[in-house]
């Protein structure tokens, strides 16, 4: 397993003549829990896909534990990505197929095993262990499509963790969920970080949904890294209000700060 150090430098992503991401320097240390925040279209998902090596920047380097994604062949990139747990937005997977929950979680073991090698009992022990840890034992043989949105999200987290990743990347894991599930998923991610101490990158446009363990925030606005640092400081900064285009008031609750739009209040 890798340590999960990520270093982006002089990144510029240009598409159709428009700069969609411009980051001079961003360093994520092993074990960090970092929230990538910003409004819709700020470049959060692009940054996450860049960190997975799925997007090639026009300039700059993306180093995962010192290995530069931009200098690798497609085959070597895939080998490095085996250490990345990735949870995409719902539009990126097909929830309508009749796969059982256990089959979906077992997909996490796919890249661990070499091509042409089948999953064995040891793999399924790991799969069942994560199903149990996330409280999905009763749904094990149920179809993925028959699960609620929250349960599906838990299954995807179990799938990512069954991969035994060195770094976990989550893209808006709480979108499309109701109030109860949003907080349950947030809590699960928090517990995962405490339990495994792996590096976590979580994209969320709703800052209040970032778990308490997420101590650092990277604020993106129109493709630029506006500010980066301690979560509470970022949430109370002028740049934060400017990026979101409204005034916020912060309240402290349970050891962390939450933002409330003043207009709503």
């Amino acid at each position: 397993m890798i340590a999960g150090n990520l270093h982006l430098s002089n990144i510029r992503v240009v598409r159709a003549g428009r700069v969609i991401l411009n980051i001079e320097n961003l360093q994520i240390r092993s074990g960090d829990f970092t929230g990538i925040i910003g409004t819709n279209g700020a470049g959060k998902t692009t940054l996450l896909r860049l960190c997975c090596g799925l997007i090639k920047p026009n300039t700059g380097s993306i180093k995962l534990d010192g290995t530069d994604f931009t200098k690798l062949s497609a085959w070597s990139k895939s080998n490095l990505r085996k250490h990345i747990g990735y949870i995409p937005q719902q539009a990126e997977y097909n929830p309508d197929l009749p796969f059982t929950l256990r089959e979906v979680v077992a997909m996490g073991r796919t890249s661990i095993k070499p091509l042409l090698q089948r999953l064995d009992n040891d793999d399924f022990e790991i799969v069942d262990d994560w199903i149990n840890k996330l409280g999905l034992a009763d749904n094990r043989n149920q179809t993925f499509r028959s699960l609620s949105g929250g349960e599906q999200q838990k299954a995807l987290i179990a799938r990512a963790m069954a991969q035994n990743p060195g770094i976990l990347m989550l893209d808006e894991p709480c979108s499309n969920l109701d109030f109860k599930w949003k907080y349950q998923i947030t809590e699960i991610i928090d517990k995962l970080h405490i339990m495994t101490k792996i590096t976590i990158l979580m994209v969320s446009h709703e800052t209040n949904l970032l778990p308490t363990g997420c101590k650092r925030a990277v604020l993106l606005h129109k493709g630029n890294l506006v500010t980066d640092g301690d979560m509470d400081k970022v949430l109370t900064s002028n740049q934060f209000e400017q990026a979101y285009g409204c005034q916020f008031e912060t309240i402290s609750l349970g050891g962390r700060k939450y933002t409330i739009n003043k207009a709503i209040k």
């Binding site: 799925l54 895939s78 490095l80 990505r81 085996k82 990345i84 990126e92 796919t110 890249s111 990512a160």
Partner: peptide
């Protein structure tokens, strides 16, 4: 299930 997940996870 998802080509995106497959690609991102190696």
């Amino acid at each position: 299930f998802s080509r995106s997940i497959a690609a991102a996870t190696g």
